[in-house]
Every structure is written in C-alpha cells, then in structure tokens.
C-alpha cells in the first residue's frame, strides 16, 4: 500500500525526521508511537503532502507521490484526520463531511458513504446541522474522522485521535477504528501518544525517537518489550 523510503523532513535548520523508512501493508493498521517532538505528526504531514521531504521517497501502490501536491494526494487514496481535529468550526457537521467528499463527485456514492459514516457515528446524525465548533471534543473527533472517510480513502491517517478525550469516548473511537479497518479493509496509520491503545490496535508499530525509527515490530511484541514498557507505558 504505502512505502516510505528514507525520508528526511526539516523545519528550517531544525531536522524533524531523519532517514525514516516504514511500510504499510494492504489492510494493515500501523501505529507510530513516540514522545512529543519525535516526528510522528511530521511523518504524517509528509505522507499527506503538507510538508515537503528534503530527501527520500514515498510510494503509494508503487507510484512515487512525494512530489504530488497535498490537494491531489487525496485523489490518490490518502486521507488525514489531523492532530487537534481541525474541524471547520463555523460550518455545520454535514458541511464538514461534504467538504471531505470534495474529491468524490459522484452524488450517489457520496450519499452512501455519508450513510455509512452516520452508521459508525450515530451521534453525528443528531448533530448534523450544528456548527462543528460548538461540539464536544469527542464529537469533533468523530467529525474529523468522518470527514476523512468521506474521501473514501484506501489509506487513512489518524493523528492523535484520542487526544484530550474522556476514556469512554476513547474506547468508542478505538472500537470504530477497528471496525472500519475490518469492514472496508482500509489501511490505517495511527499516531498516538497513548502507546497502550496504539499497540493494542495495530498489526505493526514503529517507535519514533528524535525523528528516526528506534524500534519496530508487531504491536503485541512491543507491548511485551521491556524497553517500550519502561519508556512508553510507565510500567
């Protein structure tokens, strides 16, 4: 599905990601964990095209995409639910979702996807004409994920979906992530500070430290690793 080959990304003189490589198999959930500033969000931004790579390549289904502008990557099948949710605050929930379908012009298909998303997040049905900015954090997270799903991506990037949410909402979001992956076979990259959640959900995980991959492996294996337990799980 996705292969990232030795990318480096810098903010001015400050290097945020150094020679990072990772692969995401078709239908897999891959987690990126690491502390603040480890380069998780920067990696996501490089994959979606919001941040240019200074070196390295990104292959989507075997085709190089690192030069494709962000606005055209969604058409190639990648969608992002960004860190901090970033819903359009002064637009209704429905309009937020419809903007997510900007790259999908088929109205019948849009309807179908919308129904599907309302199926995952029934709460959004009642909220559909409310301004997204007036929703609770959990509901905004649902809008952000729903908006990304409206593009019918094959690869979904979820950046910190649990950030600032009550545990019960985190459970609900986690359940839906698994459901989406299982139902549609959508590949997912999950960035999380909540390492336990991320490692439990994923097939494979990459631990980032200071912009590079420090460790990778199956989620369950990393959960058992002493290093990860000490550094990220506080056990």
């Amino acid at each position: 599905m996705l292969e990232v080959r030795g990318i480096s990304v810098a903010y001015g003189a400050l290097s945020a990601v150094r020679n990072l490589s990772m692969t995401v198999a078709d239908g897999a959930i891959v987690s990126l964990i690491g502390s603040n500033g480890a380069g998780k969000t920067t990696t996501m931004k490089a994959i979606i095209g919001l941040k240019a790579v200074s070196s390295g390549e990104i292959y989507l289904d075997g085709e190089r995409v690192e030069g494709v502008p962000a606005s055209q990557r969604v058409g190639r099948g990648i969608a992002l639910s960004p860190e901090g949710r970033r819903v359009f605050p002064q637009m209704s929930v429905l309009d937020n979702l419809l903007v997510g379908a900007y790259s999908q012009r088929d109205a019948a298909q849009q309807r179908k996807t919308l129904d599907q998303i309302y199926g995952y997040f029934p709460r959004l049905v009642e909220r559909r004409s409310q301004m997204a900015g007036s929703l609770s954090g959990g509901e905004q997270q649902m809008v952000a994920i729903g908006r990304a799903l409206m593009a019918r991506p094959r690869l979904l990037l979820l950046d910190e979906p649990s950030l600032g949410l009550a545990p019960i909402i985190v459970d609900e979001i986690a359940r839906i992530i698994v459901e989406i992956n299982r139902d549609i076979g959508m590949s997912i990259i999950l960035v999380e500070q909540n390492a336990k959640l991320a490692l439990n959900l994923c097939n494979e995980a990459f631990v980032l430290e200071t912009g590079a991959v420090a460790l990778s492996g199956k989620g369950k294996e990393l959960l058992a690793s002493d290093y990860v337990r000490r550094a990220y799980l506080g056990i």
Binding site: G49, P82, R86, F88, M91
Partner: peptide
C-alpha cells in the same frame, strides 16, 4: 454549492482544506 463550501473551508483552515482536495 461545492465551490461555496470549498471557499468557506479555505477561509476557516486553508491547510486542512487542501488535504480535502481543495486547490487553494
């Protein structure tokens, strides 16, 4: 309309609008 929604999206968050496929 589609373009109207796109304009509002760009006004509110142009970076995230781009990720939706909107060409600013």
């Amino acid at each position: 309309t589609r373009i109207g929604r796109a304009m509002r999206a760009v006004a509110q968050d142009s970076e995230i609008a781009q990720v939706q496929g909107i060409r600013v």
